[in-house]
Structure formats: structure tokens, C-alpha cells
């Protein structure tokens, strides 16, 4: 059995790739899947912090690629979910630490270990790390903010996914592309200050798989090292749950696209 490989990518930095990778991997684990989430950002390890396992990193991705540790040694088991594992990025400054063969070996190893999904958290940019993160993918989650530079970069990434990946080179069926709109602010969209879901879909010619509203809870979640999908009271967490369900093939309507009117008690007591 081979694991389904999902790359989380965007081109532009700071749009929510790592937040998305952490929540997506956790959501898949909640759905009962065996999941590994890999940080491809060599030199700038961060996924471990977002997943809350930074103090348990002993071996990393590059150690496995170089044969300095086994996959079993390097996989960090999540504290909350039995079937969820993290493979941290190396902090080396050597940009050539990852090779295509090395990455392939690790991904094959994960398939042999019976993983259902491997989530690859891509670094920003379109350099080697980003290329390797997407190369073997079966699915791509392209994270985009409703903002000009992010939208343009994501179009560039969609082009690369269609041409510079193993599936494209082999002429296999195309990578399944999912557009995820994050940091969405319905109030600003309503007054014409921010691109709407429809605007972004029109420009890129692809429908969104989810819309994550801008939320204070995302920062709170990363502060505490708990993927925001586990904050069931937050809109962002619920929107991520919906997104994971859609990626797994379930049909769910988009939520949180309209301006939230505060109720009387909320206005008086806050919240």
C-alpha cells in the first residue's frame, strides 16, 4: 500500500502553510488515518513548534536522508493522537542537504510503515526545498491569502504543480489541486477592502476547498503548540475541520463567509 502524499504550498511566505499542515495532519489523524507530517523547511524548523513537540526532536529529516538515523527513530509521536507523527526539519544551513533520491527513500519508507497520508509542509519560495516538497505529491493544498502578491504567487505555484512534479513528468493523472483561502476577513470583504472568495476563484480559475477566517485563535493555538483544528470553539478550527472532511471527499458547505453580528451578551460582556 502506498501513502497518499499531500503537499501544503503557497509560494509566498507567511500565508499559513505550517498552520495548515499542522491542522490538516491532525484532522486526518482524528479521522482515523495514520499520518506523518514532514517539515521541508531545512534551516528554518518551525512545524515542531506549531505541533508542540519542539522539545522532543532528537533526529530530523536530513538525518534520515543521510542514514544517520532510522525513520522510526526520527518520527516523533504526537502526544494527543496515536496515529500522528512529526518529522522535523533539520537546522543545518546546507541547502543541498535534501536530495530527490533521499526524499523518495523517506516517502517510500513511510509507505512501508503503513502510513495512509504524508503531509509535506513546503518552505516558501520556489527553490529546491519547495520543489522537493511538491515533487512526489498526489494532492496539493495551495494556501492563499486574499491579497495581490499571494494570489499571483499561488498562480505560479499552480503552474509548477502542473509541470514540475513526478506526476507531470511521467504523464500520470494530474495532481489533485486544492485551493485554501486563509486569513479571510468577511467584514473587510463586505466593504470592498479585500478580495472575496469568488474574486480569488475567478482569478485563479479553481474553486476553494476551504476558507479559513482570520482569527485570534490561530495565534493563541500556535502560542500553545496546539494545532488550531483542535480549538473546536474557534471558527478557524471549525473551518479546518470542514476542509479536512472535504479533502477526504465529504461535501460540506462553506461557513463563516459572512460578517458575524455580535449578540447582545457578546457586546456587553465581550467574546
Amino acid at each position: 500500500m502506498t501513502a497518499e502524499i499531500i503537499v501544503v504550498t503557497s509560494g509566498k511566505g507567511g500565508v499559513g502553510k505550517t498552520t495548515t499542515s499542522a491542522s490538516l495532519a491532525t484532522g486526518l489523524a482524528i479521522a482515523g488515518k495514520k499520518v506523518a507530517v514532514i517539515d521541508f523547511d531545512v534551516g528554518l524548523r518551525n512545524l515542531d513548534l506549531i505541533m508542540g513537540c519542539e522539545r522532543r526532536v532528537v533526529y530530523d529529516f536530513v538525518n534520515v536522508v543521510h542514514g544517520e538515523a532510522t525513520l522510526k527513530q526520527a518520527l516523533i509521536k504526537d502526544k494527543r493522537y496515536e496515529t500522528l507523527y512529526v518529522l522535523a526539519a533539520s537546522q543545518t544551513r546546507d541547502k543541498d542537504a535534501l536530495t530527490q533520491e533521499g526524499v523518495e527513500k523517506v516517502l517510500d519508507g513511510l509507505s512501508e510503515e503503513g502510513f495512509d497520508y504524508v503531509v509535506c509542509d513546503s518552505p516558501a519560495g520556489i527553490e529546491k526545498g519547495a520543489h522537493l516538497a511538491m515533487y512526489f505529491a498526489d494532492h496539493a493544498v495551495v494556501v492563499v491569502n486574499p491579497e495581490v502578491s499571494s494570489v499571483r504567487d499561488s498562480d505560479r505555484i499552480l503552474g509548477l504543480l502542473a509541470s514540475k512534479t513526478r506526476r507531470a513528468e511521467r504523464g500520470d493523472s494530474a495532481i489533485k489541486q486544492h485551493l485554501l483561502l486563509t486569513r479571510y476577513n468577511p467584514a473587510r470583504v463586505a466593504v470592498g477592502e479585500m478580495l472575496s472568495v469568488k474574486d480569488v476563484e475567478d482569478i485563479l480559475g479553481i474553486n476553494v476547498v476551504g476558507v479559513i477566517p482570520e482569527s485570534e485563535n490561530v495565534l493563541a493555538a500556535s502560542n500553545s503548540g496546539v494545532p488550531v483544528i483542535l480549538d473546536e470553539n474557534s471558527f478557524a478550527g471549525q473551518a479546518y475541520s470542514d476542509t479536512v472532511a472535504r479533502i477526504l471527499g465529504e461535501e460540506r458547505a462553506l461557513r463563516f463567509l459572512d460578517v458575524q453580528k455580535k449578540g447582545f451578551f457578546q457586546r456587553v460582556f465581550g467574546g
Partner: peptide, 22 residues
């Protein structure tokens, strides 16, 4: 509205970049 301006600018640049892609 600035969102309308953004959409129009993106529509043009994305179309242009797609035509020269690859």
C-alpha cells in the same frame, strides 16, 4: 473599492504570466 482594483490588476497579470508559462 480597492478590492475591485486588485481583482482587475490580478486578472491581467495572471493572464499574461500564464501565456508565457513554461
Amino acid at each position: 473599492p480597492t478590492a475591485t482594483v486588485a481583482k482587475e490588476r490580478l486578472r491581467i497579470i495572471v493572464a499574461q504570466e500564464r501565456s508565457t508559462r513554461g
